[in-house]
Design a binder for these strands. Structure first.
Length: 929
RNA sequence: AGGAACGUAGCUCAGUGGCUAGAGCAUUGGUCUUACAAACCAGAGGCCGUGGGUUCGAGUCCCACCGUUCCUACCA
């Protein structure tokens, strides 16, 4: 049988997914064993508008590795796929489309607009699903869910009503983050703080009478008062000015336009005390410039004495801190900026309708004209931006729906503390605790059209009734003795998308119905996700799972790394360094990309995607391809049988290399199991890589060549071929979870059992095959061959020149091993003659080497440069002596011998003896030169 | 401001308190050895950030410092 010389991923990958999907291998029902354990995961639902980014590629690969591994290991596996409706993102996509047609959503009306979104979803929403099929995700498509599905929408209503009934959801007027860009409230988590270069304006507010005419010289007075050279009168602070024009206080602000809504000036109580620097102004009244209203001083602990002048203007309707102060001091709340980010009618006429930025300019100009603008400093400060639209968030007081979080958070904290859910890596649990322990109420309402409508109805009298549907709303009205026949207006607001996502682990399984799936698959085994949604999603799912299922939603949360670009930079559209995973998959092959991602998944929190790692992985795929190609080209008589190869049914005795490779294979199976079982993905990948490449290809296949390529078939050559196929076929099975396509392709060409490698039995380790002795003996053979090659290389002897070697084994066992493997040693070290002796004679003109089980001499009459040889051996001695010195120091320490584990002391002793012996031998060799 | 993580070969990273600190890439020398030049063979390359401490023993545990990165909160 002949296959292409190099692996062509494109030729192979397209073929298998449709076969797998159509055959239903990824359904839990494909497991026929009724006693099979279940293994379930829900996918972190990507946005329905989304496309796969590098983070998904990693996240999905790791989930798929686990799913495929558990499936092959015999579990009933459910990996449930789906998408979320991404309220804001999706609405924006469709709005943009409409804008291209010159239509606004308001022109269409709510119902038509929502219809339009559904239509968009039907036609363009499937990108991510297509891409998941490219990655090879072994999800059960028959159970795919969408957060806006009927079932999931019911779950949302049910949860909302129950939480409301328990008082955990409430409606109220509070300060929220308003996104003028999106025209909706957003939650604290959706606000991104970004440093912005702005200005700090120092403004004078007159005490007593209004300053209707420009005040002269105030700025100079302020400067003088704050100058270091002029001693400040005791008891007076820099924020208080007394001039011929009257008394003034000075405040510093980054947002002068909000002064139009000031209803107090605050200072720290210390400054107001009888000893305080601003005692003189306490109790006096101020006049708000440009507006003319009278405002008072208040005292509040939150005011920092050291910042600015120590006076703070208080705008309770436009700043979260001022809002809190306003509540504490019963201040008036004047909304001067509207939801459109323009000035409201509450401000003097000339500012009305101005955008908040224009208003700032106007206010600053007018203050300057009045002589009240004293100073402007350059000032960089953090400003809240809307994550989605990028506009500056406006803190506004607004009527919204909130979820009370504190009492929901407590059980979620406890569940991780007592280990019902485990975070991997462990340090990520701290992120979780930290957030939940400082949790704030969650603003869940959004002023959007796309999403789950809040199940609430308003009566004409202004009553609000929360219910699952209108009929129930009327019943509830009746139950409260209210008129149930009035006209009801349905609540306009929808819920934050995360409100439905937080129900994902059970709503997708049919909740609130008590379905079979729910019983079978909840709680899920593991959730794999990225650390940036621990708050948004993981913590909230924990709270909801515990609340409504009475049980954690997942046993383990594995936080996968953040994928960085090759320079270690975070990928971002603005930086332009985003790598499209599909490009990577196309360039290197899906299996190679998956292998690279898996082997880069160490305990760290970041993962820089190196080109070299992808190349290495591509080469690995090619290696797998070619190793199989070698077999396919040379083992026709075994392949023709097309029956699974059984190691034990062979005629000839296995030799050392056979026991060795079996032992290695068993150990690898063990390591892959434990690696994946403990989420050490890197370990599983690297163990497989090293086994397949170094052990199987470099040694086992090389050792097999004389038999495999022999022209005549003998019982022995047949046995060797069968064994090589046996090991290869099992290696493919072990590799399949990480590299699904190439392994399926090659496995199908080898003798195998079953329809697909996807459901072939995973190789479990066989302790009867673990053979420490064979591994030690093979190590001796490998070391001897390596030393011989080393001698050849150091003396620049061409591979075509055959050498003679004399070996003195250290003991009878070593002699047996070396003599048994003599032919192999001769061939692989390119010797024409190998002689075993009791003791090496002192022969001049021979290169020498010492390994722990033997001494080696290679007569090189006329070829040896004695100085070079001496240098080589002295270097060897240096190494050995160094190591021995360390050991002797340790062994010379009485405390070590007395206190260290007996085993450790013993191995140290043995090693020291070995080293002493070797050093003596190498020394003798040097002397003999 | 508070918290967390990370500093190991030129680069990217592994490394269970004790068996010679490893891998891939890069690098040096050699090779078309009938699967693979995306390969094969053999090398070289390490005060494990710095300074203390715990311990018989520290790359590994503790403390401090230096450096890098991230998260949370936000002062007008």
């Amino acid at each position: 049988m002949e296959i292409p010389k190099a692996y062509e991923p494109k030729e192979v990958e397209g073929r298998w997914y449709p076969f797998w999907e159509q055959s239903g291998f990824f359904s839990p029902e494909s497991t026929t064993d009724p006693k099979a354990k279940t293994f379930s995961m829900v996918i972190p639902p990507p946005n329905v508008t989304g496309y796969l980014h590098m983070g998904h590629a990693l996240n999905h690969t790791l989930q798929d590795v686990l799913a495929r591994w558990r499936r092959m290991a015999g579990d009933r596996v459910l990996w449930l796929p789906g998408t979320d409706h991404a309220g804001i993102a999706t609405q924006m996509v469709v709005e943009r489309q409409l804008a291209a047609e010159g239509v606004k959503r308001q022109d269409l009306g709510r119902d038509k607009f929502v219809e339009r979104i559904w239509a968009w979803k039907e036609h363009s929403g499937g990108t991510i699903q297509k891409q998941m099929r490219i990655v090879g995700d072994s999800v059960d498509w028959s159970r795919e869910r969408f957060t806006m599905d009927d079932g999931l929408s019911n779950a949302v209503k049910e949860v909302f009503v129950r939480l409301y009934d328990e008082g955990l959801i409430y409606r109220g007027e509070y300060m929220i983050n308003w996104s003028p860009g999106l025209q909706t409230a957003i939650s604290d988590l959706e606000v991104e703080m970004k440093p912005v270069k702005g200005k700090l304006y120092y403004i004078a507010y007159p005490i007593g009478a209004a300053a209707n005419t420009p005040v002269e010289g105030l700025a100079e007075a302020y400067e003088a008062a704050n100058s270091e050279s002029v001693p400040r009168p005791s008891g007076s602070g820099s924020g208080y000015l007394k001039t011929d024009a009257g008394e003034f206080i000075v405040v510093a602000t980054t947002r002068p336009e909000t002064m139009l809504g000031d209803t107090a000036i605050a200072m720290n109580p210390d400054d107001a005390g009888s000893e305080g620097r601003y005692a003189a102004v306490v109790g006096k009244k101020l006049v708000l410039p440009l507006v003319g209203t009278e405002i008072s001083f208040i005292q509040d602990e939150v005011v920092e004495k050291d910042f600015g002048t120590g006076f703070v203007k208080v705008t309770p309707a436009h700043d979260p801190n001022d809002f809190a102060m306003g509540k504490r001091h019963n201040l008036e709340f004047i909304q001067v900026i509207g939801k459109d980010a323009k000035m409201t009618d509450a401000v003097p006429e000339k500012y009305r309708g101005l955008d908040r930025n224009e208003a700032r300019k106007a206010v600053v100009a007018d203050l300057e004209a009045l002589g009240l603008l004293l100073k402007v400093d350059e000032y960089t400060h953090n400003v809240g931006h809307c994550q989605r639209s990028g506009t500056v968030v406006e803190p506004l007081i607004s009527m919204q729906w909130f979820m009370r979080m504190k009492e929901l958070a407590e059980p979620a904290i406890a569940a991780v503390r007592d280990g019902r859910t485990k975070f991997v890596p462990e340090s990520t649990a701290k992120i979780y605790f930290n957030w939940l322990e400082n949790i704030q109420d969650w603003c869940v309402s959004r002023q959007l059209w796309w999403g789950h409508r809040i199940p609430a109805w308003h009566t004409p009298a202004g009553e609000i009734v929360v219910a699952r549907d209108e009929a129930e709303a009327r019943e509830r009205l009746k139950a409260h003795g209210l008129d149930s026949t009035v006209e009801l207006r349905e609540e306009q607001d929808v819920l934050d998308t995360w409100f439905s996502s937080q129900l994902w682990p059970f709503s997708t399984l049919g909740w609130p119905e008590e379905t079979e799936d729910l019983k079978k698959f909840y709680p899920t085994d593991v959730l794999i996700t990225a650390f940036d949604i621990i708050f948004f999603w993981v913590a909230r799912m924990m709270m909801m799972g515990l609340k409504f299922m009475g049980e954690v939603p997942f046993r383990t949360v594995y936080i996968n790394a953040l994928v960085l670009d090759p320079q270690g930079q975070k990928m971002s559209k603005t930086k332009g360094n985003v790598i499209d995973p599909l490009d990577v998959f196309a360039k290197y092959g899906t299996d190679a990309a998956r292998f690279a991602l898996t082997s880069a998944s160490t305990a760290g929190m970041t993962l820089a995607l190196q080109e070299s790692k992808l190349e290495t992985s591509r080469n690995f795929a090619n290696k797998i391809w070619n190793a199989t190609r070698f077999v396919l080209m040379n083992c026709d008589e075994v392949l023709e049988a097309q029956e699974p190869v059984d190691w034990e049914t062979e005629l000839s005795q296995p030799e050392l290399a056979d026991s060795w490779i079996l032992s290695r294979l068993s150990r690898v199976a063990l390591d892959v199991h434990s690696g994946l079982g403990e989420y050490r993905f890197h370990e599983a990948a690297s163990v497989l890589y090293q086994f397949f490449w170094n052990d199987f290809c470099d040694w086992y296949i090389e050792l097999s060549k004389p038999f495999v390529t022999a022209k005549e078939s003998t019982p022995q050559s047949l046995a060797v071929k069968r064994r090589i196929i046996y090991v290869l076929e099992r290696s493919l099975r072990l590799l399949h979870p990480i590299m699904p396509y190439i392994t399926e392709e090659l496995w199908q060409r080898l003798p195998h059992k079953g329809e697909t490698i996807c459901t072939a039995e995973f190789v479990s380790h066989n302790s009867a095959q673990l053979d420490g002795r064979a591994e030690r003996e093979m190590a001796l053979v490998i070391e001897i061959i390596t030393k011989l090659r080393n001698i050849r290389a150091s003396f620049n002897i061409a591979p075509s020149v055959l050498l003679k070697a004399v070996i003195a084994p250290a003991d009878a066992n070593a002699r047996e091993v070396i003599s048994g493997m003599g032919d192999h040693i001769k061939r692989l070290a390119r010797l024409e003659d190998l002689q075993l002796v009791e003791k090496l004679e002192v022969t001049r003109g021979a290169a020498r080497a010492v390994v722990s089980g033997a001494e080696i001499a290679v007569p090189l009459e006329g070829l040896v440069d004695f100085d070079k040889e001496r240098a080589r051996l002295e270097k060897e001695i240096g190494k050995l002596t160094n190591e021995l010195a360390g050991l002797e120091k340790r062994l010379g320490n009485a405390d070590f011998v007395a206190r260290a584990a007996a085993e450790v002391v013993e191995t140290s002793r043995q090693r020291a003896e070995e080293l002493t012996d070797q050093i003596a031998k190498v020394n003798a060799t040097i002397e003999s030169l």
